[in-house]
Design a protein around this nucleic acid. Structure first.
Lengths: 206, 206
DNA sequence: GTCTATAGGCAGATAGAC
DNA sequence: GTCTATCTGCCTATAGAC
């Protein structure tokens, strides 16, 4: 059975997709290479023809998974939408369905803690995707007429609110609490984005 | 060599302290029972005289560690301090030294992701401590004259900002970025607490 | 490139002497 | 209660046939 060069890269991509889904859902240590390869419809022996180690796969899976997740979420809130497509993206990010792991969840939130103290490769991948998210949020603030420094501060706080909100919602063992907490983040996030009256729901931050 | 009843509970506490420190720093899977027992100056064989399983130890370590961490942080910002001791506590929580793991770090932030999808025991422990933190923040808002519902929303968002801020700062591979992000959270957290002019540092949100 | 088989190591849990 | 020794199973990584 011959193998075309593009067939290999397709297989590689299948492994990567399987890895992104599994790692994001369960964390690095609770996923075995056997699980990943099974998800890619292969056996574990074939792994090392595509990646040098589990750690390397993890780093690539984070990069690939986060890009895919953010792009999809951005696409869902289409560029051709109303006044603030980014505000809608933030709301979608903080939706309970995302915290439950539906619709290609974001490794940034699902793996925050899992990444700490891990090899340089992994943390670099995480950092790069995080910077990308912050940049998107920051541009939105600058376009709304805010000073560069202030826009960056708001963007950083908003990114933390998004990631932290989903992460804590997932950690907590009480659906009602999780939803209340996500709602609070959506409101606070809306305020931070300056979406103002059109999104806020009757809060009064004094 | 005889053993008094209180000597056993002292030993148990040593194990618990060792476990809290190690789990918080490295996460559940990267810590072995051998590590924990070594930290308590015992050998691994003695473990099961005190706890039924590693998971049970983890749950207790989270509860004990978080209580200890929050109490200590609250104590550091003494009850006899200026107008808003809680505002000071929030600032201390979001200090880079905390994110670096100094001064008995908070499992709530260091283990957010590590706890997801784990046994009921573990998530219950996490949830209970989280509720405790939110309650403290919420009372502060109510005492400041805010409506109950609004106070709870603000408290939830603030808790997420604290936990998420420290977690992301730890995940990221860039000290400058980590500090900028923590600073943004401190400012945003100060605003959320209504600490206003006395803590804010020249930001203009609007 | 993919398979089966296995090397090699590690860690949770248990047994039994003291 | 604490120790040493061991059982047991799992997982990363490699070897070698196809």
């Amino acid at each position: 059975m011959p193998w075309s060069p593009e067939q290999k890269s397709q297989t590689r991509q299948r492994i990567l997709d399987s890895a992104a889904a599994l790692f994001t859902a369960h964390g690095y240590d609770r996923v075995t290479l056997g699980d990943v390869m099974r998800g890619a419809r292969l056996t574990h022996g074939a792994f090392y023809a595509h990646f040098p180690s589990k750690q390397a796969l993890y780093a690539e899976a984070i990069a690939s998974g986060a890009r895919h997740s953010l792009q999809q979420r951005a696409a869902l809130c289409g560029a051709a939408q109303e006044p603030w497509p980014i505000a809608r993206m933030v709301q979608a990010y903080l939706d309970p369905s995302h915290a439950r792991g539906e619709q290609s969840p974001c490794p940034l939130a699902f793996l925050v803690t899992d990444v700490a103290n891990r090899e340089a490769q992994v943390r670099e991948a995480y950092t790069e995707v995080f910077q990308r998210l912050v940049a998107v949020l920051e541009r939105q603030r600058r376009n709304a007429g805010h000073a560069t420094e202030s826009a960056r501060q708001d963007a950083l706080a908003l990114a933390v609110l998004m990631i932290g909100g989903v992460a804590v919602a997932r950690a907590v063992d009480d659906d009602g609490l999780a939803e209340a907490l996500l709602a609070a983040c959506r409101i606070q996030g809306g305020a931070l984005l300056g979406a103002g009256e059109s999104i806020r729901a009757g809060v009064d931050p004094a």
